[in-house]
Design a protein around this nucleic acid. Structure first.
Length: 885
RNA sequence: GCCCAGGUAGACAAAUUGGCAAAGUCAGCAGACUUAAAAUCUGCGGCCCGCUUGGGCAUGUGGGUUCGAGUCCCACCCUGGGCACCA
């Protein structure tokens, strides 16, 4: 809707005044349910939000091509835009967080469409997972059935919200047509050596009876159920995400994500620069490498520690008088290891191994220990201990009365006092070696690494905190891992043409410490694809995060039966232009999806490295300051809000409540306020939309006007008639709103965008008996057009009534620059930085003229008095500040 | 402990680049309409002094930079989040 192209620009028509307001208004009750279901039917019947792939070569676009109403307005050259909210896990009903997420994403999608983009905005379901399986254990209902019910409920509600989804691309991760390709991707990774099996100390949840990924363990507890996790030695499937640590870290610089999310990922990857140094054990004739970030403190190493899981621990202790003691310690550490081994304030336990290693820099013989504060998974599972300069080594040395040797001089005030240890700061080296003593430790660090490298005793090295991703789960309701175990051939991938490996039906879902799939004997028994001999199927299923690590690719080509996706389809849509979801996925899902992209790109399937170019993380909706939960009984269900007020109100309110990236507290009164606003818009629009039943003027408004605005204070200046002044004023306000809402949408400031439309509507009411009908219509239609991304049903209705056109088929309105500029403005007059007066100034006044106007302002004169003006600061369009002495 | 975000009326918030603090919404008060209420429409709204013109004080606290600070700098307090034996 171009301002200039406004149909039927102002006639001189003025509505006659009448006094049957009451009856006229009562015909225009705002009935969201009626309005919303009507427009939803139209969008469904016309498949308005479907969008076809342009580049898919085999004619499939006919099937998925909808009417695509918005396509009519921007032709073939419309730039593609992929707007995506995080895949919902369907359980029961959608909650308020879903409403916020989709209200947000839909506003972006609508804005994109109306600014000339072809928008892909799909929907699907993360349908495998534990809740459905736990439900099955309790009730015996097949997870497939309960999942189907939840999906149906989600669909129903999503449709009732009127979000502009291309429903033709709907997917669900539990459908064989989807997980067939999840399995295909797994085999791709397996073929590339990125999926592998190993025995490892893994986190086990005794309640859910399954292993967990490191990322799913929070403070030693299961992320899902809160049960304390145990450590078990099991053979499990892993994905080699650590191979991508460096790229996952580096590429964060190339994507437009919130800084705090990037920071979390950086911390999780945990890159450390240092050196690997070999310590030689004479007794066994073996080199033990350690990773250290502090090679500058090598001369201060007074002992050496191995992790209890270190494979050489028992071999080292064997034959020494410590053997029994070590065996007991290791056994205790390995079995009881689950209970917060991660806590830093735990006492430092450990036992000597009765063996020694040589410090490569000075040949000193130092004792070896085994202690559980050293982790097998990080570095080499062994450390050199420098108690003088490391808090943990210091605590261990104190507990076991080991020598402490200071090798870095502290800054003057700590004077080398023993009480100042451990000292982890910087300073010159001491007690080290004549070549390094006196050198600043940061330079010494490099010098020592160079020396180690030359001597072949070590080298610079980088270590990461990130661990490989444990993806196998001993659960039923997940994607089967597509391999078989053959006695002769070992682990054999299921050939691609035999995919999907379909999840079999089973009798008993109860976990027994192994996958429930193991009880499906007929399914497990199979033949080896290589040797045709007897083989058993893998009975573990995949972590559901695997399913959701690639779903955004499938949306680009959801019905492809020959491949997971067509490269041309990906080229058209990927990467996702705007991804939207909660911060709770900052590490897990977002890291895994990035990893999948990089791995698939390396395998030649993708041409991009990052799946989500821009990310927006929404804040949580709380109630009474607390997270909504059933146990607190403070849950606000979207269905009840939609029922009472309609989805337009629900959506507007949730965006109006505050900045969308911040947490916000739900307020029932606030919802009513927004509902009132929508009702006001509707009623005024209906009133002016019917020229025949001319809207009557309420008598009191007339009275009010004569009482309050006799000369029209807005008419200050030389504008001719009063009508022109008010008309101009409202037109300006409408154009101001266009400018404001457009800018706010670009920066996701939905709350202020809605407030701007509220302001416009307030002016429509305030000026309604002073402006021409056409002006009123223009202002209201503009308001509806601007509010459409937030309240699509109401705005479609209002726009249709006012203009007989479909608002979503109109391009986004553009403000007329001439309407944004007034010919005069209020000049702020300051003296010594304090506001003293305001005067009207012409827009084109020179600096000299502005100073003059300021000086003459009555209250400014009083403050200047006879004092000397030492400085004049002029900010054209804003203020003049006179500095006096 | 380390890192990040935030602290503005009675509540939620706005102020995009250092330029009129508080747009908008809620709650509140007043008026119109009504037999009345609800709904609706209109208006008022930081604190202190003053009859008003006006003046002083106000963005967690204390300093600083600047003609001018919610915004920039330093120190501190509070709230929320992330990380935390990772060598």
């Amino acid at each position: 809707m171009e301002a200039e192209g406004w149909p039927g620009r102002p006639s001189r028509f003025r509505p006659p005044l009448g006094d049957n307001l009451r009856s006229a208004m009562s015909e225009h009750r705002y009935e969201p349910r009626e309005i919303e279901s009507r427009w939803q039917r139209i969008w469904a019947a016309e498949r308005t939000w479907e969008v076809a792939n342009e580049a898919t070569p085999d004619g499939r676009q006919e099937r998925i091509a909808g009417a695509g109403g918005h396509r009519a307005l921007e032709g073939e050259q419309g730039q593609s835009s992929y707007v995506l909210e995080m895949l919902p896990y369907p359980s029961g009903e959608p909650h308020i967080g879903h409403l916020k997420c989709y209200a947000l994403g839909d506003a972006i999608a609508h804005f994109q469409r109306r600014t000339g983009h072809r928008v892909l905005h799909p929907m699907g379901y993360d349908a495998f997972g534990l809740p459905a399986e736990n439900h099955a254990i309790k009730t015996g209902e097949h997870p497939r059935d309960s999942t189907a019910a939840s999906i149906a409920s989600f669909q129903r509600q999503f449709r009732s919200w009127g979000i502009s989804i291309d429903w033709s691309r709907e997917i669900a991760t539990h459908e064989p047509s989807y997980y067939r390709w999840t399995q295909w991707i797994f085999l791709q990774l397996l073929g590339a050596g990125l999926a592998y099996r190993k025995q490892a100390a893994v986190k086990w949840c005794p309640n859910d009876q399954t292993v967990l990924a490191n990322e799913q363990v929070i403070d030693g507890r299961c992320e899902r159920c809160g049960e304390e996790v145990q450590v078990r030695q099991l053979t499990q499937w892993f994905l080699r995400i650590t191979d991508y640590a460096e790229r996952l870290l580096r590429d964060l610089d190339r994507i437009d994500w919130p800084e705090h999310v990037k920071t979390m990922q950086r911390n999780w990857i945990g890159r450390s620069e240092g050196a690997e140094v070999n310590f030689f054990c004479e007794e066994l004739g073996v080199d033990y490498p350690v990773f250290t970030t502090r090679p500058d403190t090598l001369f201060g190493a007074t002992f050496f520690v191995l992790a209890p899981e270190h494979p050489d621990v028992m071999r080292l202790a064997e034959g020494t008088d410590r053997e029994q003691e070590v065996r007991e310690y290791v056994n205790r550490a390995l079995t009881a290891g689950g209970e917060d081994r991660g806590a830093a304030d735990r006492p430092k336990t450990g036992v000597p191994l009765g063996r020694h290693v040589l410090n490569p820099v000075n040949g000193q013989r130092i004792p070896m220990f085994v202690a559980d504060y050293v982790l097998m998974e990080y570095g080499t599972g062994a450390i050199m201990a420098v108690p003088a300069h490391d808090e943990r080594d210091y605590a261990f040395a104190k507990a076991h009365s080991l020598p402490i040797k200071r090798v870095i001089e502290g800054v003057p005030e700590d004077g080398g006092d023993e009480h100042q240890l451990p000292y982890t700061g910087d300073g010159p080296l001491v007690n080290s070696h004549p070549d390094f003593d006196g050198m600043h430790n940061r330079q010494a660090l490099q010098a020592i690494v160079d020396w180690l490298d030359r001597e072949g005793k070590g080298h610079a090295s980088v270590s990461y905190r990130l661990r490989d991703w444990l993806v196998s789960r001993q659960r039923y309701w997940g994607c089967p891992i597509p391999v078989v175990h053959c006695e002769r051939c070992g682990v054999v991938p299921v050939p691609q043409q035999q995919l999907p490996v379909v999840l079999p039906d089973i009798e008993d879902y109860a976990p027994k410490g192994r996958s429930p799939l193991a009880s499906a004997q007929q399914w497990v028994a199979t033949t080896c694809p290589v040797c045709s001999g007897d083989a058993r199927r893998e009975t573990d299923t995949m972590d559901t995060f695997v399913d959701s690590s690639w779903y955004f690719l499938r949306y680009c080509d959801p019905h492809n039966e020959a491949a997971a996706f067509d490269p041309l389809a990906l080229k058209e849509w990927m990467p996702v232009d705007q991804y939207i979801g909660g911060v709770e996925h900052a590490i897990l899902h977002l890291m895994y999806a990035r990893f999948f992209c990089k791995a698939l790109a390396d395998l030649g399937h993708l041409t991009f490295q990052e799946p989500f170019q821009a990310l927006f993380t929404q804040g949580m909706i709380t109630k009474d300051g607390a997270k909504m939960s059933k146990s607190r009984g403070n849950v606000v269900s979207p269905a009840s809000i939609v029922e009472r007020f309609g989805s337009d109100t629900a959506r507007c309110y949730i965006l109006f409540i505050g900045p969308p990236d911040q947490d916000a507290d739900w307020s029932d009164e606030g919802v009513e306020g927004v509902h009132r606003f929508l009702g006001r818009l509707y009623r005024l629009a209906m009133e002016v939309a019917e020229p025949h039943a001319a809207p009557p003027r309420p008598a009191h408004v007339r009275a009010d006007r004569t009482a309050h605005a006799p000369s029209g204070s807005e008419d200050r200046g030389d504008v001719g008639s009063e009508h022109q002044g008010a008309d101009l004023q409202l037109m300006r306000k409408a154009h101001w709103a266009i400018e404001k809402v457009s800018a706010d949408l670009r920066r996701f400031a939905f709350n202020t965008a809605i407030a701007a439309v509220m302001e416009l509507l307030n002016d429509c009411y305030r000026l309604r008996d002073q402006v021409q009908l056409q002006t009123q219509r223009f202002a209201l239609a503009t308001g509806a057009s601007l509010l459409f991304p937030f309240a699509p049903h109401l705005c479609s209705e209002v726009y249709q009534q006012l203009t007989s056109q479909r608002v979503w088929e109109q391009p986004w309105p553009r403000a007329d620059p001439a309407m944004l500029e007034a010919d005069s403005y209020q000049l702020v007059c300051q003296v010594n930085g304090k506001l003293r007066d305001r005067v009207q100034a012409p827009a084109d006044a020179t600096a000299e003229r502005l100073i003059e106007l300021c000086r003459q302002a009555p209250n400014v004169q009083a403050h200047i008095d006879r004092r000397e003006i030492v400085k004049e600061i002029v900010v054209p369009g804003k203020l003049v500040n006179l500095v006096v002495r």
